[in-house]
Design a protein around this nucleic acid. Structure first.
Lengths: 141, 141
DNA sequence: ATTCAAATGCGAATAATTTGCATTAGCATA
DNA sequence: TATGCTAATGCAAATTATTCGCATTTGAAT
């Protein structure tokens, strides 16, 4: 069984060609991708998946916590990535590239918070933005 | 001169009734509000401002750094608040209330990051979510 | 008071996402 | 392996949030 199929099984979802293909795109991406990107990537490689199916599959996977949805300051729409590991990005406002951070700066903070406030923290979204080294250079020139 | 007018002056913007009213709503709100909320609030109190003007004024104020735009995990659209102080929220996924945090957990982290990566950090978006005390109780019952 | 660019209102346009419904296809079972 | 039922898909239309074009109005500088 392929990896994509295993993921679907783990979520208790039916295995379909479309779902496999969408998951494969996510597995191949080194950066978060939009629903549209997935749709276009699949179309390019000859597959046929409708955009609404892409959205529907992503929604299901997000609910199952197999995929994470990001709202970036930068982009108009949402981006998606596999939720294998907790991760944050440095987002460059110049070139729009996203650079993953090595660690999450909030782990200890959240524990403290839960104790202090009684708020049951289930997660967070964090995005740090600015200008990458290349774009800093360009700005100076 | 009223506060709202002073804010506009500080931004170098022309003072208009609509802008004053929009800023007043922001000043009165204890929580971030949507463009639609502002529009409705003004309509209720008899004012007349078009929704497109609300969006336009907010956009200008965001560019002038007088207003901050938030994309919450929770809401479909964007929320806005005055950018007087840097602030983050605990967002309750049950009742959708937003509870401001006392401090920003990222200040020292960002400095470290700038040194280590050469990425010029200009800002960040952070939102911590989960369930407030009341909603935790409700879930248990 | 006059002038003129900038701001506003309105409705139409756009972009991202969702939904309804008819058709198709997994997969459990006979 | 064939059959049947439900869930998944495709398509087009609907929604939602936001932006834009253009005619009209209005602040504020003179």
């Amino acid at each position: 069984m392929e990896n994509s199929e295993r993921r679907l099984k783990n979520c208790g979802l039916k295995i379909t060609r479309q779902r496999r293909e969408i998951i494969k795109i996510l597995e191949q991406s080194t950066r978060p991708v939009s629903a549209e990107n997935i749709f276009l990537a699949l179309r390019q490689q000859g597959g046929t998946v409708s955009l609404s199916t892409v959205y529907r599959v992503l929604e299901i996977l997000v609910n199952k916590k197999a995929v994470r949805r990001l709202n970036t300051v930068d982009e108009s729409g949402a981006l998606f990535e596999l939720d294998d590991t907790h991760r944050h990005y440095l987002v460059c406002l110049g070139c729009h590239k996203m650079f993953p951070l090595d660690d999450c700066p909030l782990e200890t903070y959240e524990k403290k918070l839960t104790c202090q406030t009684g708020f049951d923290v289930t997660g967070h979204s964090l995005e740090i933005y600015g200008y990458c080294r290349d774009c800093c250079k360009k700005k100076k020139n």
